[in-house]
């Protein structure tokens, strides 16, 4: 990743947060729909949660040697 990639990505993220603040009016009445940057949080925390949770599940329970079924 080059520097301009990061700058573009940050600009897009900040732009979307600003647009959300000034131009988006949520019609949904759920408490969570009023959290600022909700979808950004969902993306970041969801991504980390999926990686960590899946890897934990794999290491503790599901992952086996590639030849696990070879004797079947």
């Amino acid at each position: 990743m080059k520097r301009w990639h990061w700058i573009s990505l940050a600009a897009v993220m900040i732009g979307s947060l600003v647009l959300e603040r000034v131009a988006v009016h949520h019609t949904s009445d759920y408490w969570w729909s009023h959290i600022p940057g909700l979808y950004g949080w969902l993306g970041l925390l969801g991504c980390i949660g999926i990686i960590v949770g899946s890897k934990l599940l794999g290491r503790k329970w599901l992952q086996r040697d590639e030849h696990y079924y070879d004797g079947e």
Partner: peptide, 28 residues
């Protein structure tokens, strides 16, 4: 706006934790 936030933030999360996503020679 929702889609852009979701996708951009997911990218940040991936970049941060990308080493953990490298393939492993295992079976699930």
């Amino acid at each position: 706006v929702e889609s852009i936030q979701l996708l951009a933030a997911t990218f940040f999360g991936f970049w941060w934790f990308r080493s953990k996503l490298a393939g492993q020679p295992t079976l699930t």
